[in-house]
C-alpha cells in the first residue's frame, strides 16, 4: 500500500504549478492550500491487478447537505451572538427578568381584579358588622348607665 497524493512533499505545490506548463489559459491559478491533501485515496496495489480503493478521504456533499451545513452554521452563529451577547446584558440580570413567575400563589392566573373586588366587599361587610355591633354595645351601655342612675 502506498499513498497517492497531489504532491509528493510539503511545500512543493507552488513550485510544481510553476514548473508545469499550463496548456489552458489560466495562469493565475493558485492552490490555496497547496500542501493540504484535498483528496487522498487509499488504494491497495497489487502487481498485475487493478488497484482497490480502500479509503477515500474526500467528502462529496450534495446541495442539500451543503445547505444544511450552512444553516447549522448560521444558527450556531446566531445562537452564539444571542447567548454571548446577552451574558453581560443588565436586563437579563435584573429582577424583572429573573424573578419568579406568577404572583407567589403558585398558580399563574393574573386576572385578580374580581378577587380583589370580592375581598374588598367582604371587608366592607365586616366593617359594617363591627359598626353595627359597636352601635348596639353603645346603646346597651347607655341603657345600663341610665338604669344605674
Amino acid at each position: 500500500m502506498r499513498q497517492c497524493s497531489s504532491s509528493s512533499g510539503l511545500f512543493s505545490g507552488w513550485q510544481q504549478i510553476g514548473e508545469r506548463k499550463s496548456k489552458r489559459g489560466c495562469l493565475s491559478k493558485a492552490n490555496a492550500l497547496p500542501d493540504w491533501p484535498l483528496m487522498a485515496v487509499l488504494v491497495e496495489h497489487m502487481e498485475g491487478q487493478r488497484d482497490y480503493v480502500i479509503h477515500k478521504s474526500i467528502w462529496h456533499l450534495s446541495d442539500n447537505a451543503i445547505k444544511d451545513v450552512y444553516t447549522l452554521y448560521i444558527m450556531f452563529t446566531c445562537w452564539g451572538c444571542l447567548v454571548f451577547g446577552s451574558m453581560k446584558d443588565p436586563y437579563y440580570d435584573s429582577e424583572q427578568y429573573r424573578k419568579d413567575g406568577g404572583d407567589g400563589t403558585g398558580h399563574w392566573v393574573y386576572e385578580k381584579q374580581e378577587d380583589i373586588e370580592e375581598s374588598a366587599r367582604a371587608e366592607l361587610w365586616r366593617e359594617e358588622l363591627i359598626e353595627e355591633i359597636e352601635q348596639k354595645v353603645g346603646g346597651l351601655r347607655e341603657l345600663e348607665e341610665a338604669s344605674k342612675k
Binding site: E114, E117, E118, A120, R121, L124, W125, E128
Partner: peptide, 12 residues
C-alpha cells in the same frame, strides 16, 4: 356600583 354593596360576592 357594587363597590357600595356588602351583600354581593362576585360582580362580573
Amino acid at each position: 356600583t357594587y363597590e357600595l354593596n356588602k351583600n354581593v360576592r362576585w360582580a362580573d
